[in-house]
Nucleic acid binder design. Structure first.
Lengths: 116, 116
DNA sequence: GGAGAGATGATAATTGATTCTCAAATAGGG
DNA sequence: CCCTATTTGAGAATCAATTATCATCTCTCC
């Protein structure tokens, strides 16, 4: 079930289903199995759920370096980005405590730009 | 319908309903009216929909300065943050085009920290 | 080869958010 | 005030994502 490990970014259950059905190994796989496996993966700590947008939870391996994401407005795919940004603490109001942060870039991926 | 204008952050339809029902002006308001008004607000360009997390679209006035958001893990409220960060372009893979970006901080707001 | 445990796929059921429907309430304009 | 057009609230309906159900498969071990 680790098509995810070789993916260029986090995938949703549906994306995973489509991708798996393309390969010979997962020809007749059902959506229920996808959800079951994803759930187990998260419970076992192998996967992390990321919510980049409303109505679509995506999953990625939990052993990735700290990184952020890019969401393509053309194909709706999410891509991993390397690196991070500085000085996030300066955004924080006094009295607030930050435990986590996300940076999400929107735009068109290389593929979609070429496609027009 | 501009409780939103005086809010400390973007609100969801449900939050807005609860908030309005507290005041005498919107005592018996229904959720349908909230959605109708929000939709109209977005269509007329007075409001902007922001999706900070799965399954909850929030709305904010469209005339705010560029800013980002903080999502409290305690009370689930969203807060506006002032300012922005630099060097976001450096995250972008070659060939990708960025049209928009979001920074979302997670943690506990001042109120929730005090509450324990 | 067969029994039992667990996994699987198809589909039904659930869930939460949003939209639709419709009768009642309201707002103007004469 | 009365008439028409619009808005409203309540609840039903829709929709997409996720979960549950269940009969079938697939193992493993005997």
């Amino acid at each position: 079930m680790e098509v995810l490990a070789s993916s260029t970014g986090p995938m949703s259950a549906t994306e995973l289903l489509d991708e798996l059905r393309k390969g010979q190994r997962g020809a007749g796989i059902g959506i229920a199995t996808i959800y079951r496996s994803l759930k187990r993966g998260v419970e076992h700590g192998e996967l992390i759920a990321v919510e980049l947008e409303s109505g679509a939870v995506r999953y990625e391996p939990s052993d990735l370096e700290h990184h952020h994401h890019f969401l393509c407005t053309g194909c709706s795919r999410a891509f991993d980005l390397e690196g991070c940004v500085k000085n996030l603490e300066q955004l924080l109001p006094t009295g607030f405590e930050m435990t986590r942060h996300e940076v999400l870039l929107h735009g068109r991926c290389a593929e979609c730009r070429i496609a027009g």
